[in-house]
Design a protein around this nucleic acid. Structure first.
Lengths: 183, 183
DNA sequence: TGGGACATGTAAACCGTTACATGATTGA
DNA sequence: TCAATCATGTAACGGTTTACATGTCCCA
């Protein structure tokens, strides 16, 4: 899946692995996450497959940057993937729920503490997503964002998902806490 | 993570891989999924680690069943894991959102069709979860469920998560469809 | 001079998916 | 007799995570 995220962003413009990493951290965080190690290796793999090409640039500074450009083959592969609709849902994988499911014999206070801590984390995530939704794609310049105006409704849809997900999560945590506190 | 689900269920009683598979399909589906291939190999690995022991049984029929039993070491490992609270959230991985994020240049109707199809899938999942919440842990006998009465509030909490998640998902799909149809 | 951001990689381990493979029992 | 369910496994592949590894630039 990371493959298509990289191709998708490179369709906007040529970028370095580092830029792609920042973009993923900032913009897809609420539906996809990747470590820099995977990003760099995947870019090399995509280059070997001919979906992207790369150029090593020595800037004014002495930092070496490798800039990746989407090839025609890469562009076609991305379009082909987008034209193949999903026919399934992705199975949920929620570590916290595994723990809750088997928590009957844990000390009640421990469970409560764990849920309260999760509440803080999700509260923070919600606030972060709300901030992104107010000013999306900060890594792109104003002109670039204007050039991508047609993308905006799709970007805001995904961030709205993140916001609604976190709200749902917080409410579930509150209800579950209430229920456990009553035991 | 599957490791702890297996240990968790084996704490209830000794079971075969097949029974564990059915239980996972029925009861943890809304927060964890696993193929039988992974279940059987993980059980063997847990046995090699001494966390479970197994016995081959020839029943009246000629089906050979391997029944796994939780060892003391396994029980301790499960308890230790449960006593180590999560300090992070699991990163989201939502294939559909990746597609939506990069869907600006797709034919609008294709996007709408894909979202409508997802709507059907999630509607079905919601109905399935509602059914489970009415009668949880059907794979367990009535007596067994009574013996596990203290687990019930935790099980119902997780299934409530599944239900609220699917409701949120459906609402998000509806709002997104509405928005895209207006474009 | 030290820390943080910039910048790029490799290697090993681990986990999960897909495909291959087999065979018995039960009820329609 | 055919399909569904019961029952158990192996192998290969691919994707993700964790750890290791290095070096520059810029500002306080």
């Amino acid at each position: 899946m990371l493959k298509y995220i990289l191709l998708g962003f490179l369709k906007y413009r040529a970028m370095t692995g580092y830029e792609l990493k920042s973009l993923i951290d900032e913009s897809t965080m609420h539906f996809w996450h990747a470590y820099h190690s995977q990003i760099y290796t995947t870019l090399r793999k995509l280059e070997a497959e001919g979906l992207v090409s790369s150029e090593l640039e020595d800037g004014d500074d002495h930092l070496t940057r490798r800039t990746y450009t989407l090839t025609e083959v890469g562009r076609a592969e991305l379009t082909a993937w987008l034209n193949t609709p999903l026919t399934e849902t992705v199975p949920e994988k929620e570590d916290l729920l595994v723990r809750i499911f088997f928590s009957a014999e844990r000390p009640t206070q421990d469970v409560i503490d764990e849920l309260r801590f999760q509440r803080q984390l999700h509260q923070r995530k919600l606030e972060h997503y709300l901030q992104i939704s107010r000013a999306p794609l900060q890594d792109f310049s104003a002109e670039e964002r204007q050039g991508r105006a047609s993308d905006l409704p799709f970007w805001t849809s995904t961030i709205r998902f993140g916001i609604e997900y976190e709200k749902m999560y917080l409410q579930w945590l509150d209800e579950t806490l209430e229920q456990i506190e009553r035991l």
